[in-house]
Design a protein around this nucleic acid. Structure first.
Length: 423
RNA sequence: GUGGCCGUAGCUCAAUAGGUUAGAGCACCAGGUUGUGGUCCUGGGGGUUGGGGGUUCGAGUCCCCUCGGUCACCCCA
């Protein structure tokens, strides 16, 4: 039997699983500090939710859908992104929720494609959404939150690019102008775009093909064509970021891959990752999303952050996150007669707030001590016939071998009094 | 999804131009030390060479398919 997880998925085991849990917990803590509520949505959605919102021309819908039919013939899709499900869930319960709804989630998402490092079919995402306000303050807050999170996770070698891609008032006109321009220069575009630009001309702008780049550089810029409200909104976002001291650069070629985005688009990229997948966090405003689902207009802004990539960026920057899940004290039982007392020791330590573990099996003392050392524990509690008879426990500091025999009731206090950093 | 590279013990690797029972280090287990780990010594377990098929007297080595990883592209988290 093949023990590998399915292609493009990954198992997480210590220490990486511990680090990932750290990323989850710190994400939750930060989001809650900003006043965001935790939400969960179904991992499966009707396929239509994504085709109707992301857009038929988006890559997610065209070739990355993880789609199958259930037993009743319904087409279901493993969510490739979190915003549409979050908005769907919000709209379904809109009357029970506050008009300004700030939500965060930590969830797996799926995209079907050829996997490589930092690009998985199943990947872990920390996302936040501010639903119910068109104010640039919302944009600024989610961006500042992402920036703050990355820095708190020890990262510094990343940058933030932002752009405004307009809204339904100014984008269509710009799109036509851009289309006309691309049409006139189509012979210089890469093959794939000669046809495709008609579906969504904005897409050509972030193409890395030499010819496309050359054409893009001479193309009309959306920033020069924004309608007044969009221009004002974007100015608000930028000055807000200045006010929050969030470093960023304007990138007129930045376009989001999903159709529902309006106005603000942004991406955080890590210098530690391969150029092709350096994006660690992407997001933007989606004031048209609710309408795409047939609901009344509801503005929103948010981001999705790829935590697998955040961890890779940490690897690249040499960030060492503290590891949990290691017992403070490893209890060693010598001989059958001491086993009962040993489990009493384990219970007592735990009741005093000291994480304690044992090896379960009656192995030789040296083997158990080896296990204690391997476990990463700071201390070993040696319990044999002698201790069992005397109601004591021998505590050994594993960093230097110093040890002391104490009454069980004094053991926890003694460990607490020791240095917090066992070697 | 397109193209390239890679795949030998848990890990890192070795195995002359196809040639006998596929080796080593680390890790793991046991003993030396019947109550003291991380050092040392001795011994031990562990591989259908990713899987399948083919060529050959003979395949880890050559060919095909397949699975997986990886890099670039597409695109993004």
């Amino acid at each position: 039997m093949d023990l590998q997880p399915p292609r493009g998925t990954s198992d997480l085991l210590p220490p990486r699983s511990e680090r990932m849990l750290r990323l989850y917990r710190s994400a939750g803590a930060l989001a809650e500090l900003y006043g965001y509520a935790y939400v969960e949505t179904a991992i499966l959605e009707p396929t239509e939710l994504f085709t109707a919102t992301s857009g038929e021309s988006s890559d997610v819908v065209r070739k990355e859908k993880y789609t199958f039919e259930d037993r009743s013939g319904r087409s279901l899709t493993l969510r490739p992104e979190g915003t549409a499900p979050a908005m769907r869930a919000y709209l379904a319960k809109v009357h029970e929720l506050p008009p300004l709804f700030k939500a965060y989630y930590i969830e797996p998402e799926w995209r079907y494609g050829r996997p490589q490092a930092g690009r998985l079919r199943e990947f872990r995402v920390f996302g936040v959404e501010v639903i119910g306000t068109p104010d640039p303050g919302g944009d600024v807050e989610v961006i500042a939150l992402a920036d703050s999170y990355l820095r708190a996770r020890g990262l510094s070698r990343f940058n933030l690019r932002i752009n405004s891609i307009g809204d339904e008032r100014c984008r269509p006109a710009y799109g036509e102008e851009l289309s006309a321009y691309l049409e006139a220069n189509r012979d210089r575009l890469v093959d794939e775009h000669r046809i495709r630009f008609q579906e969504n001309p904005l897409r050509v702008l972030d193409c890395m093909d030499e010819g496309c780049v050359a054409v893009s550089s001479g193309a009309p810029k959306i920033s020069d064509r924004l309608c007044d409200p969009c221009r004002e909104h974007f100015a608000g976002v930028r000055s807000g970021l200045e006010g929050e001291s969030v470093p960023h650069v304007l990138d007129p070629t930045l376009v989001r891959g999903l159709d529902y985005y309006t106005r603000t688009a942004f991406e955080f990229g890590s210098d530690e990752l391969s150029p092709g997948q350096r994006t660690v966090c992407g997001g933007g405003r989606y004031d048209g999303l609710a309408e795409a689902m047939g609901a009344s207009p509801t503005p929103g802004v948010g981001f999705g952050m790829g935590l697998d990539r955040v961890m890779l960026a940490q690897d690249g920057e040499g960030v060492a996150e503290a590891v949990d899940g290691v017992p403070r004290c490893f209890v060693v039982a010598v001989g059958e007669a001491a086993r009962e007392w040993a489990s009493r020791v384990v219970r007592t330590l735990r009741a005093s707030g000291i994480s304690a573990a044992s090896g379960f099996e009656p192995r030789p003392l040296k083997a158990q001590l080896r296990m204690a050392g391997r476990s990463g524990a700071g201390f070993a509690a040696i319990v044999g016939e002698k201790e069992a008879g005397a109601g004591t426990v021998t505590l050994r500091r594993l960093s230097d071998g110093q040890q002391e025999e104490l009454r069980l009731n004094d053991a926890a206090a003694w460990i607490h009094s020791q240095s917090e950093t066992p070697a």
